[in-house]
Design a protein around this nucleic acid. Sequence first.
DNA 1: CATGAATGAGCCTTCATTCAT
DNA 2: TATGAATGAAGGCTCATTCAT
Lengths: 205, 205, 205, 205
Amino acid sequence: MSRPMQGKATGRRERRKVVDREQVLEAAARMFAESGYNEAGMAEIADSAGFSVGKLYTLFENKEMLFSCLVQERLRQLEASSAQALEPSATPLQQLRQRCRAALEFYVGDPHFSRIFLHEYPEQADGIIQQETQRHFAIIRSYLEKAMDAGEISREDPEPIAAVINGMITSLIDLDVMNERACDADRILGQLDRFVLEPLGQRPA
Amino acid sequence: MSRPMQGKATGRRERRKVVDREQVLEAAARMFAESGYNEAGMAEIADSAGFSVGKLYTLFENKEMLFSCLVQERLRQLEASSAQALEPSATPLQQLRQRCRAALEFYVGDPHFSRIFLHEYPEQADGIIQQETQRHFAIIRSYLEKAMDAGEISREDPEPIAAVINGMITSLIDLDVMNERACDADRILGQLDRFVLEPLGQRPA
Amino acid sequence: MSRPMQGKATGRRERRKVVDREQVLEAAARMFAESGYNEAGMAEIADSAGFSVGKLYTLFENKEMLFSCLVQERLRQLEASSAQALEPSATPLQQLRQRCRAALEFYVGDPHFSRIFLHEYPEQADGIIQQETQRHFAIIRSYLEKAMDAGEISREDPEPIAAVINGMITSLIDLDVMNERACDADRILGQLDRFVLEPLGQRPA
Amino acid sequence: MSRPMQGKATGRRERRKVVDREQVLEAAARMFAESGYNEAGMAEIADSAGFSVGKLYTLFENKEMLFSCLVQERLRQLEASSAQALEPSATPLQQLRQRCRAALEFYVGDPHFSRIFLHEYPEQADGIIQQETQRHFAIIRSYLEKAMDAGEISREDPEPIAAVINGMITSLIDLDVMNERACDADRILGQLDRFVLEPLGQRPA
DNA sequence: CATGAATGAGCCTTCATTCAT
DNA sequence: TATGAATGAAGGCTCATTCAT
């Protein structure tokens, strides 16, 4: 009666739920990063988020799904900000570089999540991380393939190159995290240029 | 009477203990790789090793130490085989390459352990893995520094380069593990040449 | 809205917890008395109390604390009923006698606890029992000292006398417990009069 | 062949066993007193006695029996030294006093055992201690009964009196043990005179 | 619909006892 | 017969999940 139609405007209820989920994920990221997946308890997370334990279970099926959602949500955010950073007029290689910069800045701006994403693989939630990593690979690969089509880089199997790019970014961020030092996106991007993009361009020569 | 002196030849007892430890570590590597640190139970490990639970506790102080010993033992092996692969007459850069090949072959030959080492960071045993990673970094760095001294590569901060090398190897092995595909040390080594060693040499130009 | 202020009336929650603790202590007293501290398992106690194991750990930090609380709680009760039995107008020696009667009646009325208190000294919880025994001694001693001040008994070291009183009560209750016979507080009190209080009074003569 | 007859002279084998048992009991008394019945492990006891664990199980059926034997053995010793201290020409009441002195001196001379005997009742071995305590009671009672027959003390139920004597001795030794103070047999005996024997004698008056 | 106390399966660890050497 | 390493049942405790309020 009160909500005769629902259209695009999601109900107050639904919107509330989304906000609460965000808040829980925030807290979960903090706790997982601080103590690790197994060591972080649902009670602590609930507490840290200012909710009851029961609420968590209305928002997420269980602990594993909470973790999965955290990963997925954050990577969706990364995707969004990457997309925004993209200049449509740029060449595929330039776009790849823009995407990498966006990713770096995202990681830097969300150290809690970075710590989790780079270090923790709860065996159960493995699937999600693998899947998400695959998606990232696919995106990087698509840029590489377009760049190959455009003749910017030599034609070859893009998968290992995507892996190299991914691994390089990961290890350089990790290095900064381990040294508890602020992470400089520009410096890392410089190394990416030097060790991957430039060699790729030179190949045909 | 039976054992008048003991000299270098360790007693039958000691040798047996060493063999048993090895066997348990084998099983532990398998179980940790299959199910993760927390999910693998001491009972399962014992079972899988063909021992009783009690035996495990005569060989290792507790679960955490078992994991630590596994990591340390395997990395000791890696170090040993790396050392053997080293040609003393080679240049520092060639030696670095030899070391990387040895590491690659070790990882390839011990997929159980690779899975653990690359993925699992039980918060408690964190110290050991970080420590060992640091040791690896230090070794790679020392080769890089020697190569700089020898003028093989340009002089610059070796730490991020070590990180790049490590990250590249890790991600490429990981890629093969994820695709459940045999890992080709030569191919990875080729990519290492192309994306790190060659750019490093070209710099001064 | 539901609980605008809380004043002295503890919340329903708190009261419930107190009741549950009492119930668990009841069961624990039974089990400890039946099987001894080490032989009584938390699961059995939980079962016997009609609670889950987990519940026990929300009420008491651990098994040792459960035992400690049992001892402290019961002795607190003893103290309370002793205090109530005291006639302020009585002489110190009469008060001591009143106190002993109260203690006897308490032991008689709580055979489970008596069995534990008189027999079981779990090495770990030793501290509490010794401490409580000391407190009892101190109380008995203070009556003796007041009686000495009042000239009711001869002045001398009150400590061994307190020990004698305590030991006599203990052994006489123990005798009844061992013979599985109801314990007659009056009879024991009579023996206390005859063997301690009268000789003490006669001394100066 | 080697031992054609055995007569009263026990074989070398048997004598050895007796000596070994004594040594184990010595160590067990030490460990039980130090850590309590449950906390003292068979391995520790074996170690402390200079034997293997296996040996313990050839000398005693199990841990419980070891404890029982310890109690029985020591109390047998007490009985022996008490018997020796007895002057046959003395009156029953004097003999009781002699016996109590012997007991006191025994406890004082064997603080390890005293600590166990006075404090620890492993539920399982309960039977033995109760039984032994009963035997002690019986002995004390028999002196009391003889003294009644001889008209030294008034005729009445000897059991509670035996309990009083026992409890008084126990608590006074305990007091010294708790204060970690050397235990003065004469002082305790004086208190026994004052609080039990003298009142008993006065009764008929 | 929110709460958070209750649940209980499952884990690590110990240690009395056994038995192959 | 002596040894002491191996055994594995049992125990204390945790924490993800549920459900009565």
